[in-house]
Amino acid sequence: MTPLHALAIFGAGAGAGCINVIVGSGSLITFPVLVALGYPPVVANVSNTVGLVPGSASGAYGYRRELNGQRARLARLGLASVIGALTGGVLLLVLPASAFEVIVPALIGVACVLVVIQPRLSAWLGGRRRHPHGGPWLWITVLLSGVYGGYFGAAQGVVLLALLGIFLDEDLQRVNAVKNVLAGVVNGAAALLFIAVAHVDWWAALFIAVGSTVGGLLGASIGRRLPPIVLRIVIVLVGVAAIVKML
């Protein structure tokens, strides 16, 4: 690895860590950079997943104030994320990449629409009885998003924000804090699987890890200051960019 390649990977990791904490979709920065530098797609995906784990941790730490009182919720939804992530990681290792090429853009598109209409959906659900942890439908959909996150993960944050915003009676910043933890759990579980059974390029993972840690702290500082309407606009813009990138 040349110094220039190392710098490029570090920069991509910093950008990914920052955008992951604010919205998600950081893999749309790091994954293409690794592929462009000559890494095979599966090795790039695996190394990227491992490298982004510290960034998720730093982002969750930056949102620690918004996580107060949500421990039981995180434990419940975290289990769904672990199961989904391990399932998705196994799928990555045994299925062709084309398996998700059709459904992923559609999934992100639906998530963007849900983010836009989430206030109205929340108001409608507010008149009904809602489970404090989101109920069984949120658990199931978080598990499914974990499958996607373990498989590839780009724009997983957009999907999670849409689901959590609809099913939880919380403001968007507290929802974003939960999203950061769950996305980190998915990355962590998938990373452990990949370390055990797949080939990780440790130099690439290391530079992404350092960059994403710095970017995660920066992203938390920025994201926590954004008004809900601005954060919602950023989420949709990133989601649309992800769709364009994948088509």
Score class of each variant (00 low, 15 high):
I208P: 09
A106M: 14
G165C: 07
L37W: 11
K245T: 03
L91N: 04
W139K: 05
L247H: 03
R71I: 10
V159K: 01
R76W: 08
A97H: 05
A57T: 06
A242V: 01
V53C: 05
A241G: 06
V113G: 06
L237E: 03
V43A: 15
G89M: 07
L163P: 06
Y63Q: 14
V230S: 14
G150H: 03
V240P: 01
A183D: 08
L114R: 05
L34C: 08
G127A: 14
V50F: 05
V115P: 04
H133W: 10
Y39S: 14
V21N: 06
H5W: 09
T2C: 09
L77A: 11
E170A: 15
I19R: 01
V210L: 15
I166R: 04
V21A: 08
L52N: 11
L67A: 14
G135C: 09
A190Y: 03
L193T: 13
A16S: 04
L79M: 11
N48W: 00
A220S: 10
S98C: 07
P3C: 08
L164R: 05
A80T: 04
G153V: 00
S122E: 09
V43Q: 15
A60Y: 06
V104L: 12
I29A: 06
S25P: 00
N48R: 01
L28W: 02
P40R: 11
G55Q: 08
S122I: 04
